[in-house]
Amino acid sequence: MYTQALNNPAVEAGVEDEEKLAAFQARIDREEKIEPNDWMPAAYRKTLVRQISQHAHSEVVGMLPEGNWVTRAPSLKRKAILLAKIQDEGGHGLYLYSAAETLGVSREELVDQLLTGKAKYSSIFNYPTLNWADVGAVGWLVDGAAIMNQIPLCRCSFGPYSRAMIRICKEESFHQRQGYDLLVAMMKGTAEQQEMVQDAVNRLWWPALMMFGPSDKDSKHSADSMKWKIKRFTNDELRQKFVDATVPQAKVLGISLPDPDLKLNEETGHWEHGEPDWDEFYNTIKGNGICNKQRMKDRIKAHEDGAWVREAAQAYAAKQAAKKSAA
């Protein structure tokens, strides 16, 4: 579903050949795509592996809060839509792990990093989905924020990531519309349904704003990513775009947003907003969000429960290969 500009240890700069570096930067500046077999600085590779794998992990962990409602979806149509959406997230995880693999790291290593807590995933998935409207709010706000962040990634300098993002963005845009549609249907419904929508938005609005990562003044590693055209807008710029796009949608929906400081600046045309609670953000990143431990427990359980299945598939494939070579 989504990548987040999380703070990470600075990439250690190895000694790179100056000439190669200059030629590499010139290609980036000409908007050429860098492909897996092309020369690239170690730090560029490392940044991409980190970002793409975090993004893949977010897709996979992101299946859990929505999956929480699969068995309880209130109609067959909504159940089918929800399942199809979660299935898309799994597919995004697959493309992204594959894109990361082109950089010389295996899916097993990356999954291991997630399950041992070495790799991060988006903070948003550590919040619970507590009523059915959360499914709609996740589509509208969370996928909406993801799209803002991901549209520029379609132009990312690394070819496989850029191409994966083009496909992912098309699906995310459908996800956002289905989320909004779900909320519209509930807002047309009973008072109880309308309350559910307002409750979901109250809880998810700030965590959605946090998805863009820390404020620019606290964001540690944007410079290289900007120079390499992995990132094209700052966290605050993207957050502002999201707020500007979303406030009018909230008005159409007929709900309020839980930010008393939200007001239109007539001069700039932008919606000014309050500061997210950054203590909560850092605390969640550290692992203390309400669902961090549960999400990891669920992922680890699925992985461990599935070990015998994966082993069986490998054992069978090995037997088949042996039979083939003996024949």
Binding site: V60, M63, V70, Q87, G93, A302, H303, G306, A307, V309
Partner: peptide, 9 residues
């Protein structure tokens, strides 16, 4: 959904 042995499955 979200709990199978691997993503493909």
């Amino acid at each position: 959904c979200g709990h199978a042995s691997h993503l493909e499955e």
